[in-house]
Amino acid sequence: MVVISIIIILVYLFLIGSFAFGFDKVKPFKLKDTPAKTTFTVIIPFRNEAKNLPSLLKSIIKLEYPKHLFEVIFVDDESDDNSVEIINKFIAKSQNNIEIIMNERTSNAPKKDAITTAVKDAKNDWIITTDADCILPKYWLDCYDEFIQEHHSKCIVAPVTYNKTNGFLNRFQLLDLLSLQGTTIGSFGIKKPFLCNGANFGYQKSAFNELNGFKGNSNIASGDDIFLLEKMVKAYPKKVHYLKNEHAIVSTKPQQSWLLLIEQRLRWASKANAYTNWFSKLTGLIVLLTNALIISLGLLSILGVFNVKIFLYLFFIKFNIDFFLIYKSATFFNQKEALQSYPLALILYPFFSVYVAFLSVFKTYKWKGRTFKR
């Protein structure tokens, strides 16, 4: 058992170490004040987002990009609050090109349907998706435009973070997201991209149509970002890039309770079995095995069945390599304050992740007032 445990930890060390190495391989992209050229359609699906829309709409007003070069399409997914009213009032006062359309449901995936509906209506060359609970940075579209002009991309993955760091729950979620973002950036650095976030995800409309959008995974409610990324990477391996620029960071809100956080993670985990990227599956398996191993060895050490010193050595290796990657990510996102909760979060996280993985095998999950099966 000792030998197997050491092998698992060493494999984990190599995996996370490769992401940390890859993180630095993705060089920061610097704005050069190049004249704007690219036309964008920003797609924002929403369902009962009245509390979040005012902040999003204010950030849209502040976008520095030329107004004639972008449009915003809000897709109403059967909202029963005053979300539509809030957006319509904003449209009446705004000089931006903004419209609301109704979602055309054709599958078990409301958000995928919403994006597909909007893409059909989109007038511009590039699609960028974000969420109604996000805040957009003012040079957001400038970053995309200059990057596209320089790299001639087909698909662009861009950074996302949480905008609250007060309290352990918020910092726990932020550390988890920083780990995911670090892994995302690192995977691009080692030429094996497999993660992205639909809150900040761009692609050519023509590429979306060529790949038949979400066809092939529309039976899975979530995954509007990951499954499309998999298609893009397979079709255009040298044209999928990561936009590593602090002015491109979209911020969103963490979950307000542990129960809501578990529901969110269940939704994320529900699509894992449908991944087609072997490296994605291998990474998920290694991470799950390592977290389960830490829990098991910790309990066995307490019971006197496993050598405590060996357990502490293995835990120390995991503690440091995880911190190494998260520190890089926290530095890029300028959120080092979250690191104060890292020791406690690292102890709690294996239990949290294994619990969510176990529940995802059996449990349905709720999303926007609807219940979905795995």
Rank of each mutant, 00 (worst) to 15 (best):
A118Q: 13
I302R: 09
I8G: 07
F333V: 04
F214D: 04
F172Y: 14
V26C: 05
N52I: 02
E85A: 04
G298D: 13
D176I: 05
K27T: 14
R374I: 09
R370K: 15
F332E: 13
Q335N: 11
A50H: 07
L228V: 03
I220W: 09
G189W: 04
L346K: 12
L136R: 05
W258R: 07
L266D: 01
K32D: 04
V305R: 05
S83C: 10
L288V: 00
S79F: 03
A132L: 00
I135W: 05
D113A: 04
N217I: 10
I44W: 00
F362R: 08
T117V: 11
E210P: 00
F46S: 00
D80C: 11
I148Q: 07
D24E: 13
V11Y: 06
I86T: 13
V361S: 01
A207W: 11
T130Y: 03
S280P: 01
L260D: 15
F90A: 02
H241V: 04
L282A: 14
L285T: 05
P45V: 02
D125M: 10
E146Y: 07
K205E: 03
V233R: 05
F227S: 01
N273V: 07
L56Y: 04
N166I: 05
H152M: 11
M102V: 00
I91F: 11
A122D: 00
W268V: 10
L344H: 05
K318V: 14
T371Y: 08
H241T: 11
Y365V: 06
S257I: 10
T290R: 01
L299G: 08
I16P: 04
I226G: 01
W278P: 11
K373V: 04
Y313L: 13
A292L: 12
E246H: 11
K234N: 15
I4Q: 09
I44Y: 02
M232S: 11
I347F: 15
F352M: 12
P35D: 05
L243I: 07
I91M: 06
K244Q: 10
M232Q: 15
E78N: 14
Y162C: 01
I7Y: 00
I100E: 10
N108R: 15
L314A: 00
I190F: 12
N96I: 08
V3F: 07
K62C: 01
F74I: 03
E230L: 02
K231L: 10
I347L: 15
I347D: 14
K363A: 14
N212E: 13
G186T: 03
W278T: 13
V119D: 12
P137D: 00
A248D: 02
L57N: 03
G213V: 08
